[in-house]
Design a protein around this nucleic acid. Structure first.
Lengths: 115, 115
DNA sequence: TGCATAATTCAATATTTCTTGTAATATCGT
DNA sequence: ACGATATTACAAGAAATATTGAATTATGCA
């Protein structure tokens, strides 16, 4: 991942409503959710939700698939993985001991599967 | 960390020059670098660099300390740790198997202490 | 004190991003 | 084919961010 891709991802996540959408989709998992349900969940208009979904999609953090009349959105885990890896790379560069806590903690969270 | 704090961090990092500054400071480690050197390194004017440094500072990702005539900036590792933890929380929520790869990979990078 | 250096603050402009409402497209059920 | 639903696309105005240059503050040194 290059700097400009990372900036695109970070910009996409750097918005209250989009971060909420993203977290919602992470919780929803692979099957994702239709745009309408997402709009309801974050209390936003269809137009505005559609705009934000497109932003997240452009950044490669989510993807859309049509299912009948609905368009379902789901997290693109690979995009997120790349972003985290990019940030971790920076974090650890040269002095792993400094970020050790962060990574260990994150890993613990992951294993327990909850917050 | 709350959503608004995460948005502040993500916004701060979501800018080419600021991301470059941040990475530079991560490499520089705890002693950090004076604002002037940072400006030179990213080829930016003092004014613009100062503006961006303030943004990163406000988000809690770096901090400033005066050292004589110079003002040194260094990464605030705790701020970064909180952001990563916040993102990981989301990532793992309910289905640890999905982000396992990301975390394992990040950890490997960390252990080897290189890119 | 007075001058030079390091960095910030301020104010105006330019640029980007967000929001809102309206119109358009696609699909389903009858 | 027609009407209803789900969603996106477009356009205009509003709001937030970024850039620039000039002025200001703080420090060190002679």
């Amino acid at each position: 991942m290059e700097s400009k891709d990372a900036v695109a991802c970070l910009s996409a996540l750097a918005h209250d409503q989009r971060l909420a959408i993203f977290r919602l989709l992470v919780k929803a998992g692979p099957p994702g959710l239709p745009a309408g349900e997402i709009a309801d969940a974050v209390c936003a208009t269809p137009t505005s939700t559609s705009f934000h979904l497109k932003e997240l999609d452009r950044a490669g953090l989510i993807h859309a698939t049509r299912s009948g009349r609905y368009i379902r959105y789901a997290v693109q885990f690979d995009g997120m993985r790349q972003l985290l890896t990019f940030l971790m790379e920076d974090c650890c560069q040269g002095q792993p001991e400094l970020c050790g806590t962060a990574v260990k903690k994150a890993r613990a969270l992951c294993k327990s599967g909850s917050k």
